[in-house]
């Protein structure tokens, strides 16, 4: 796989997420492996339904009740998937935190914003009510909530969408986590403030030395913030590369399709994915061939019969496609 000198902060091996359904079993994530170095920003891109969120939920122990995760998620020397609930709670919110897709509904409407922030510190660091509140206000100030001291006493419905997401960012970074999972943190927001919120998140994370996994379907965002990118399709990794490499020289037909669907790279905000012809595959059963085969322009005979193996194609690069050659 990827060979680097330092010890990875996170290493996911063969992660799968399955859902029990009345009709049978649905596989949302299928054998995903990846590594993340301290301080790195990793992007996960893929169309809607490709399993991006489920990867993060599996790591956080937040899968729906009909979901099961398999494989290994090693984080700071522990396998998150096999931790008992109490031990997992010592990790979540402390060294591992998450920002959700929908800021409008992700904050508790019945609780003052300041209390929601302070709660994390009181539970994890045993701070007093006052000290936790002060830290919460200071953090709100850092995410540029105007007049943070009085705003902290307000309830979420009194905040705009952008402000709520900044509150979420403040809440996630409050305990100075080692790793931040950001699930499309800006898709629900107004286009004009998306960039601003993302930059703020990245800046604060850099200051605290926090690594980020950023899930998005916006390649513009990837180009702007990520060091490395994993491309997901139908719950499987299609390709992984450093950001520049991916944009200059994508190996996988799916990635090339995504890039071609992007009009201009230098445009600050680009349209979403999904203009590749065909219907995106989402978490289906076990496909014997390549999941992308039905939509692939470069398809050859073997594609529908044999699952393409993951091949290392260069330094920190890999791709799963029959047309890709292994690096020597």
């Amino acid at each position: 796989m990827i060979r680097m000198t330092a010890e990875p902060l996170l290493s996911i091996r063969d992660l799968s997420v399955r859902f029990r359904l009345p009709e049978g079993e649905a596989v949302a994530v299928d054998g995903v492996s990846l590594d993340l170095m301290p301080g790195e920003v990793l992007g996960i891109v893929g169309e809607s339904g490709s399993g991006k969120s489920q990867i993060l939920y599996a790591m956080m122990g937040l899968l729906a009740s009909n979901g099961r995760a398999g494989g290994q998620v090693r984080f700071q020397g522990q396998d998150l998937l096999s931790l008992p609930p109490r031990a997992l709670d010592r990790v979540r919110g402390q060294s591992l935190s998450m920002i959700f897709q929908d800021p409008m509904t992700s904050l508790n409407p019945f609780m003052r914003v300041g209390d929601q922030l302070a709660e994390t510190l009181r539970v994890h660091q045993g701070l007093s009510r006052d000290a936790a509140w002060k830290a919460a206000v200071a953090m709100l100030d850092r995410v540029r909530i105007p007049d943070a001291a009085s705003r902290a006493r307000r309830y979420p419905h009194e905040f705009s969408g952008g402000m709520r997401q900044r509150v979420m960012i403040a809440m996630a970074l409050l305990a100075k986590p080692r790793l931040l999972l950001a699930d499309e943190p800006t898709t629900a927001l107004d286009v004009t403030i998306q960039a601003q919120v993302l930059d703020l998140m990245a800046e604060l994370a850099r200051e605290t030395g926090t690594s980020i996994i950023l899930v998005t379907h916006d390649l513009g965002v990837v180009a702007r913030l990520c060091d490395r990118v994993v491309v997901l399709y139908g719950g499987r990794v299609m390709e992984e590369a450093r950001t520049e490499t991916l944009f200059d020289n994508a190996a996988h037909p799916y990635t090339r399709g995504l890039l071609a669907a992007m009009p201009r790279l230098e445009a600050p905000l680009t349209p979403r994915l999904g203009t590749i012809p065909g219907t995106p595959r989402s978490g289906g059963g076990d496909v014997s061939g390549c999941p992308f085969a039905p939509r692939c322009p470069d398809r050859i005979d073997i594609c529908t019969k044999a699952r393409p193996p993951m091949r290392i194609t260069g330094e920190g690069r890999r791709a799963a496609c029959h047309l890709v050659e292994e690096a020597q």
Partner: peptide, 13 residues
């Protein structure tokens, strides 16, 4: 609700 998921994610027990 999403906000309960947020609370879980905070690891408060």
């Amino acid at each position: 609700e999403n906000y309960v998921r947020t609370a879980r994610a905070k690891g408060i027990g």
